[in-house]
Amino acid sequence: MSTSPAGGVTALPAAYRTQRPGAPGPGAAPAATALEVFAPAARRSGWPGRLLAHVRSPLGIYTVPLLIGVLWQIASWQGWIGPEFAASPAQIFAAGVSLWREGLLGPDIAISLTRAGEGFALGLVAGTVAATLAGLWRGGEQAFNGVVQILNTIPLLALLPVMIVWFGIGEESKVLLISIGAGVPIYLNLFAAIRGVDQGLIEMAVAAGASRRRLVRRLLLPGALPGFLVGLRFALAYSVLGLVAAEQVNANSGIGFMINQAQTYDRVDEIYLGLVIYAVLGLTADQVVRIFERVLLTWRPAYTGA
């Protein structure tokens, strides 16, 4: 209408024209309107399209770590990275194989996994129980919040000497240190998630006649689940961190001990092997929680990225 040439526009009453300051005046060239067309998303048919979809990200989130590994290997072959600084991925792999054959790697991994697993389990239970009590009752909040905030601020490494003085250099001090690393993020995230449940929903449930018990079971705990899973992810990562801290200082077994030994004997490949094992542990733990999220949070409309 307004894009028609001069004749059509001048035919309009003057009042109409003055109301539309953006409209082209008489004689102005009609502005081309930018259009956008939406149609069913193009489905990739035939093998070239499917291949392209795979090529773009063939291994999901593992793509970039693997790509770094490949570039690293090429850089080592080309001599851009000296062997005294970093072993090549192939050398790291070879070191792993030979340590495994000697029967040294397997037990070290097992003992480290046990420590991390026990510490994580302890932290998970303690953090979940404390956060639930604190989230639901103000008395619990007053009892736990201060202590957890203190623990959250003190670095794990700084706690280690205290743990050793109290519990000796055995497994207890290591497991306890890891449990603190795991329990604190669980507590903080779950507590915040329980307190963050939508007030409108709570009001609705109370008005509908839900008992306190039902409020907790049907509303507060499921509502806090997304926050809890965030805490779980941090907890898994922090238990690996706690593991490193505990094993670096005093241990005669485990991955950290292996790294220390390698440092003493200047085995760069074995140092890197230890780091790679820690990295794989962290990545695996994260993937496990992602599976939990997918299964437990199907109800949630979530942005999955463009």
Binding site: G200, M204, A207, A208, S211, R214, R218, G223, W299, R300
Partner: peptide, 25 residues
Amino acid sequence: RAIVFQGARLLPWQRVWQNVTIGLY
């Protein structure tokens, strides 16, 4: 008595029928 709010205020993690039974025993 019962109240219907301006927004539906449904629990997103409960199926439709479970939302209806929130105050029902």
